[in-house]
């Protein structure tokens, strides 16, 4: 009898707690949804001091890796084996990004190892530059640049 009474009390307590949480969830639900639905049209303007061409230090076995790659939040969004010219800017297509922090990772293997190399990343929000950074690399060093930026309702900010 005592066991049944204890179980009944616990059942009532759990029911009350879940009821309270469900009411609070209903209240906050639409607000969260509204925040998540905030998106921005973001594109990237890239300028490199090197051309992308065949790399004499590449491994020519099996899958050929791109000489130039842009990875946005872990997803490859642009890659090229050639066709990128030194000091000639190009702009990617637009990506719909939610508000919050994002990362654009630039990977490249400049074939000219005689000089220092640089790559400039500009984040464009609806075509307007809102964040910019130039990354420098020593002669022979592979280009690996992580550009972290934040998309806010007002625009974007660099995060270093």
């Amino acid at each position: 009898m005592r066991f049944i009474l204890t179980a009944a009390v616990w059942a009532v307590i759990l029911a009350l707690v879940s009821f309270v949480f469900s009411i609070r969830g209903m209240e906050s639900g639409p607000i969260d949804k509204e925040v998540k639905e905030k998106h921005a049209e973001v594109s990237f303007e890239i300028t490199a001091t090197f051309s992308v061409e065949d790399d004499p230090f590449a491994l020519n076995i099996g899958d050929k890796k791109s000489a130039f790659e842009l990875v946005l939040d872990g997803q490859t969004v642009f890659s090229a084996e050639k066709g990128i010219n030194d000091r000639v800017s190009f702009t990617t297509e637009s990506f719909e990004l939610s508000t919050g922090k994002h990362e654009l990772f630039v990977k490249a293997n400049p074939s000219d190892t005689r000089i220092s190399q640089a790559v400039r990343v500009q984040v464009l929000l609806s075509g307007n530059p809102i964040s910019s950074e130039t990354y420098w690399f020593n002669p022979g060093q592979a280009v690996n640049a992580a550009h972290v930026f934040e998309v806010t309702e007002k625009g974007s900010q660099n995060e270093h």
Partner: peptide
């Protein structure tokens, strides 16, 4: 090894 050779090449030039 190829990455090391590339780095070595840049270092020699410097």
């Amino acid at each position: 090894l190829l990455a090391s050779l590339k780095s070595l090449d840049g270092w020699i030039r410097s």
